[in-house]
């Protein structure tokens, strides 16, 4: 069968505007300068989200009360990356855990250092390693370390 002609096209994402909810992230970044983690707590069911939505998913009401969250937590799940987003191999495998911090119900993703890939496990206790110089950026929390 004859092959068809190929016509190239593009999906111009640059022409779209992406308004994104910012309250949770803003509050979190602001407090991280002082090595503090702050989320929002639902007054009805007590769920704590960080940075999270401005409403509770379960109760479907607005939440405006801030709540402090610990910088210690538990690994809920993890992966070990061997390739980057384009599938190119990494120089060294990289451990990426998803952590539920104490006092928080939502999960947060990061990088885990100070442990060999074969020793990581679900349920492992970890703590945040804070950067020496903090600027109110996600880089302020450098990585997790075993507790």
């Amino acid at each position: 069968m004859e092959e068809t002609k190929i016509v190239n096209g593009a999906w111009e994402l640059s022409t779209f505007h992406f308004p994104i909810e910012g309250r949770g992230l803003k509050t979190m970044l602001k407090n991280m300068k002082d090595k503090k983690l702050v989320g929002f707590k639902c007054p009805q069911c007590g769920m704590v989200y960080m940075p999270g939505p401005f409403y509770c998913r379960k109760c479907f009401i607005r939440i405006d009360d801030e709540a402090e969250v610990s910088d210690h937590g538990e690994i809920m799940t993890f992966t070990i990356g061997y390739a980057d987003v384009r599938g190119n191999p990494l120089d060294e495998p990289r451990i990426a855990p998803v952590v539920k911090l104490d006092g928080c119900d939502s999960w947060i993703m990061g990088v885990l250092e100070g442990v060999k890939p074969e020793d990581v496990h679900v349920g492992m206790r970890v703590k945040v390693k804070w950067a020496e110089e903090r600027t109110g950026s996600l880089q302020d929390m450098q990585y997790f370390l075993p507790e």
């Binding site: 980057d84 987003v85 990426a96 600027t135 880089q139």
Partner: peptide
């Protein structure tokens, strides 16, 4: 907000590809 898209460091890093 300062995420490292290569997954190298920082919280919220996109690990794993």
């Amino acid at each position: 907000a300062g995420i490292d898209v290569t997954g190298g460091s920082g919280m919220g890093a996109i690990g794993g590809g």
